[in-house]
């Protein structure tokens, strides 16, 4: 005789493995430079975790990754990339070129196609000809080479702004470093006014042949 009492199906309780921790990225590439910037606010819901968490990850002397979305996935993904780059360096005695990192990142993201890294990535760097290059991603690894992009919580606010300024640039009329930097600053100040998940500070990296220049701009802190 079966003495086991049927208590019905186990209760389906929900654990949510993703969090939306906010943050935005803007990046613009030019003839001999690439600029990538992120805000430094890390938040969840109405709560600000910290006001000084940069979302830029320097991968080599000429490539920087901007990474926003679910912060725990960001940490995991960037750690894996950095380990892979180290392996590559030790195997080949060469630092990986940005176009190869771009493919690696796409493969990494797609490896978790059915439990994705909830992360928006922008990879900026200088290609083998010394020209600025930029790759924009979706969370499951779609990769596109672009000239400018905005992503993260304020991506939808800043992308049309960049479109209006840079959308119909031609090779005869390339964007200068000064212009790009001021566009980045303006995009973030505007986003900081309307998006509660973007604010506090902007950190930017300008990647050029002779190194990476870093700077900070203050944003609204409320």
């Amino acid at each position: 005789m079966d003495t086991i009492i049927d208590r019905g199906a186990p209760k389906a309780r929900n654990f949510e493995p993703y969090a939306s921790n906010g943050g935005s990225i803007v990046a613009i590439s030019g003839k001999d430079f690439a600029i990538v910037a992120s805000d430094t606010r890390l938040s969840e819901g109405y709560m600000i975790y910290t006001r000084k968490q940069s979302k830029l990850f320097q991968l080599s002397d000429k490539s920087v990754l901007g990474c926003t979305g679910c912060w725990c996935d960001t940490l995991s993904l960037t750690n894996i990339i950095q380990s892979q780059l180290k392996s590559y360096l030790y195997d080949h005695n060469t630092i990986m070129q940005p176009n190869s990192i771009a493919q690696l990142l796409s493969t990494l993201l797609y490896s978790r196609r059915f439990f994705p890294y909830y992360v928006y990535n922008v990879l900026a760097g200088l290609d083998s000809n010394g020209e600025g290059c930029l790759y924009s991603y979706d969370p499951v690894g779609h990769c596109e080479k672009v000239n400018y992009t905005a992503g993260g919580s304020s991506g939808v606010l800043m992308q049309p702004f960049l479109d209006s300024w840079l959308g119909n640039r031609t090779a005869e009329n390339p964007v200068t470093e000064e212009e790009a930097l001021s566009l980045v600053k303006d995009a973030f100040t505007a986003a900081g006014e309307r998006d509660i998940y973007t604010g506090d500070e902007v950190v930017y990296n300008i990647i050029k042949k002779d190194g990476i220049k870093t700077g900070v701009v203050q944003l609204r802190k409320d």
Partner: peptide, 22 residues
Amino acid sequence: GEIDKLGTAFADEQIASGYGAY
């Protein structure tokens, strides 16, 4: 530094969790 149940990790000069955060 703080780490939450998802693995969200960060460092700051003042941290509080739960009701303490509010």
